[in-house]
Write a protein that binds this DNA or RNA. Structure first.
Lengths: 121, 121
DNA sequence: ATAATATATGAACGAATGCGCATATGTACA
DNA sequence: TGTACATATGCGCATTCGTTCATATATTAT
């Protein structure tokens, strides 16, 4: 039983091109980094959050205004803002009772635009 | 009962800054486009798919090789490749029994890099 | 035609996710 | 101090998602 076979057993798959696998394996970033990257895109992968980000690209807004703009429950917006906050995509400032949210990532606009380019093609 | 109040009723939220809402509303892309954008990022928002894309950034690969590289079931890889195919992120060519997948979007690399910049900060 | 093998796919199941409800927290003002 | 209001949050529910298993499809070789 050779090396390929033993990997086949653990991965239930035959290796056809070991050279390619080794080459690719050598350039793959650390597992954890790719996991974080997926987590980042997951945050962008919800239409409510995308709408919030899109709105904040134009202007800072308070929670109530975002809820009114999107015709959604204040609670739902708060929940999503928490997720955006946790992934450091938005920041906030308090003014009395009112909390104003704004974008906290200068690259969001570009990522947004590349995404739009993709869906247009 | 004024205009703000009536929106408050349907969205269960008071409008504080009507001017901002109107300004933002005027520049928001169509709902459908934002939905598609979220769908696009949702596809990138899974670590298996991110790993596949990352591997294909380096070289085209067949299904078995991807499964072996990621130490995952061939079926799981096939399912994820279908999703990547549907969103036109990968393309494939057949060579006998073997199906080779490769990237089908020239902007993926840049989106990837911007994502990495974000998680590094 | 039959066997072997690479890939695709439907069903099922557990896990994760988004939202609404109820309520808590914090702030302003009477 | 009490009321009003903006926001945050725990819980529960419905839905979606990722994976595995079993099996189907397709291609090659015997």
């Amino acid at each position: 039983m050779n090396y390929e076979k033993s990997i086949q057993d653990s991965c239930s798959c035959t290796i056809i091109h070991e050279d390619i696998i080794n080459k690719v394996k050598s350039i793959m970033p650390q597992e954890e980094k790719l996991y974080d990257l997926a987590e980042f895109f997951k945050v962008l992968g919800d239409s409510t959050r995308i709408k919030i980000i899109c709105a904040l690209l134009e202007s800072e807004m308070c929670v109530c205004d975002i809820a009114a703009l999107l015709c959604m429950n204040q609670s739902a917006i708060s929940h999503q803002l928490r997720i955006l906050k946790q992934s450091r995509l938005v920041k906030f400032r308090k003014e009395g009772k009112v909390v104003y949210y704004s974008l906290d990532d200068e690259h969001i606009k570009q990522i947004f635009d590349y995404g739009l380019i993709h869906i247009m093609e």
